[in-house]
Design a protein around this nucleic acid. Sequence first.
DNA 1: ATGAAAGCGCTAACAA
DNA 2: TTGTTAGCGCTTTCAT
Lengths: 332, 332
Amino acid sequence: MRQVATLAGVGTKTVSRVINNEPNVAAATAERVWHAVRSLDYHVDLQAGSLRRADGRTRTLGLLVGSVDNPFAGAIHRAVEDTAIKREVAVFASSFDDDPERELRAVNAFLRRRVDGLILTSVKRHPDYDASLRAQGIPVVYVDRRPLDATYDSVTSDNREGARKATEHLIRHGHRRIALLTDRLDIQTAADRQQGFFEALGHAGIATTSTPVITELHDSGAAQHALARLLASDQPPTAVFSSQNLLTVGALHALRDAGAQRSVALVGFDDLPLADLVDPGVTVVAQDPQEIGRVAVTRLFARLEGQDLAPAHIIVPTTLIPRGSGEIPARA
Amino acid sequence: MRQVATLAGVGTKTVSRVINNEPNVAAATAERVWHAVRSLDYHVDLQAGSLRRADGRTRTLGLLVGSVDNPFAGAIHRAVEDTAIKREVAVFASSFDDDPERELRAVNAFLRRRVDGLILTSVKRHPDYDASLRAQGIPVVYVDRRPLDATYDSVTSDNREGARKATEHLIRHGHRRIALLTDRLDIQTAADRQQGFFEALGHAGIATTSTPVITELHDSGAAQHALARLLASDQPPTAVFSSQNLLTVGALHALRDAGAQRSVALVGFDDLPLADLVDPGVTVVAQDPQEIGRVAVTRLFARLEGQDLAPAHIIVPTTLIPRGSGEIPARA
DNA sequence: ATGAAAGCGCTAACAA
DNA sequence: TTGTTAGCGCTTTCAT
């Protein structure tokens, strides 16, 4: 910046003014500065600036998702980025694979880089870093999962309701022996979806004592094996509710391998690319990850812009999309 | 940091030493400092540190991909992140939708944040920001696409070869009227794949005058419409090669809509989730985006660690995965 | 083993 | 409208 100032024959503060579009610079001066900037190929150091800037903003956001590789997370990420870029804010994205230790490390990494705000997915319902975030006064919006602490904003799908819809849909097609494939129950979405599942069974007066529930499923391979075993048992389910996108993929493979894709019904939570092209089409309760991301980042920027909002738990509706697999009737 | 120093009864330099695990600190002193750090919930400011640090490193990387929403990019991103996190390096991820203007803006944003290195996808074969990167001495590895300038590292799939394999596969099943669905030809991957496609036709002695080639296809919707029109024409193709994942999705829809999924063959470039569950299974030339990301980030860190490597163009092989759609024979 | 002073590149506050 | 000085939080250098 000093070089630019020298070349343009002005003080550094004037360069700063020009670069940041501050008022009170003569047009001719500004032109000389821009010329110097271009000819020296100068790029401001935003980090150095934020060190001294009154609001201390780094124009940086932290985004934590299960994995940047998951289509659900990808859609959230894209929505966040699109809004952030308009405000010249850059996004750090991290994956944590539902590992609480990685979660903590990622948030600490964000803090050390002085992000202005955070969009977080958490496994824990009482995150360890909570006190730090509060002390630093960093705005946070949780996505996908909602922490128990209601003083934070959160944006999630209607998990319980969505799972209930899915299960009712299967019940409506005559199923009474419906298997549930799910992840660790300390993960809030898994717990909520399980709750919705059992609610639907309860309302229909279906005894749940012999309902096959398989938990601790983290990936499609595990789901595939679990369902394969279930299908081979003496009391196989007539329908399956898989409560997460990767588990649905595993379930599809297991059904296909067992030749049961046309006899055992399946509804998945969260949509999948190509779900409509599989035969039969995969019936799902679709989430709207793009909308989740959009709402979350909008909320975050509102707070960063100083709006004094009451913490809100925003619920983005899900949609049951019947495509075939969920409409297979129970055998007599 | 001053507060920590005061509380621990030491100078700020000692705090700095402890935090950065520098030698020459008495164990007892270090313990006092760590205690103060914990009780004040102190987090270093990495940005301030990098301002003064001798190597000037920010422990930050910039990653530019078509869209963080695309599974191909997601896999690259994840691989980059996994290596970066081990070195306590954070990753800025941006999407640019093959828009040269967005590409330039994204790179400039990275420069203003003083990233240590870049992993870039580019639409342009001579990127505009090239001179800046060179002047700043920032190491760059290109992924997916290779710039004309051979002084940069790049990691790509064997696009020409992969497309050739795909096309030969179709020819082997008796096809001579094969349609090509592709994107803008100024995109290097599109051009390379088209070249491989025509090479295969040429080797087989197939006249290409009436070969249906549809370019400028950016998304699945466009591909779907284009192929639908082609299938309805008086000279419909007996096979289709779609040269990108989104275009393959569009092609699948068009074939399904026309009821041609069992009569018209299809091979796609780049794998798709669920491709094996569609009926018939989707034959693809699979790329290995995770490996592309892994190789690229490894290369980048090697340079950051000062290794003096000759620029290399690393090619990650593709694999033809026959699943059914590509093995449909040509009708007589 | 420890600390004091200087300075990284920038912006705030104030002076001219 | 413009420039000067100080200082953001840290690491470097050099002294003790």
